[in-house]
Design a protein around this nucleic acid. Structure first.
Lengths: 110, 110
DNA sequence: CATTGATACAACCATACGGTTGTATCGCCG
DNA sequence: CGGCGATACAACCGTATGGTTGTATCAATG
């Protein structure tokens, strides 16, 4: 896990193939070759996608025999979630402030 | 709002400047020029960042006089959140299945 | 209606990204 | 240890991205 910051995480998620790989790693224990077989691109291309996910801290690889199983790293996903939650919280606060403002304005008008 | 899909949304969020712009649009009602003044890059560059956010459906622009106020579009953010929530749900299910598996194994060993 | 303020857009440049093919490493097995 | 299966890595190519400067649009104001 090199530098798993928000930039890398969101960039990694900004590709449909990579999001699909994340889903597959959540569902089962597939190696690089198995994952690659699902997509109509070269093995190396899928390998690169996995590397991007790994660099972002979204997946890890576990050696089993001569294969490497790709595993979800839920902490990376949670980091992204917490950031979006922060936005949502701020949004709620904003709406609340606006509601209060409208309420006080109505008081004046009353 | 052109094609606000997951690709665009995550790509838009994969840049620190753009995430900061989102935060500022959540905090107050700033125009393009005000937003641009916060960053050490050209006006046009910030304008482009805002355009990316707009294309992703994360912000909208509202004309007020000769200015344009940049506003958060919470629905875009919620789309990203719901995707990550889906991952989290799948993860929970996965952990649960593993727990059950371990439990049944222990039964056999008992 | 000419000017100024605020925003938009086009052209251009350097670098990053997604894909390819080819070669190298690594672990198992006969 | 030779060979094969599985993964990794390097070089290359076209296109997208992030930045710049310069020009154009558009709305308020004197």
């Amino acid at each position: 896990m090199a530098t798993p910051n928000a930039d890398h995480i969101f960039a990694a998620l900004a590709d449909a193939t990579r999001r699909d790989i994340v889903l597959r790693t959540l569902a089962g224990r597939e190696g690089v070759a198995e994952l690659a077989s699902h997509y109509s691109m070269s093995f190396a291309a899928v390998q690169k996608h996995i590397a991007v996910l790994e660099r972002a801290g979204l997946v890890t690889k576990e050696r089993t025999g001569r294969r490497k199983v790709v595993l979800t790293n839920i902490e990376g996903l949670n980091l992204a979630r917490s950031l979006l939650d922060q936005y949502e919280t701020l949004w709620r606060g904003r709406v609340e402030r606006m509601t209060n403002l409208i309420a006080s304005t109505e008081e004046i008008h009353a």
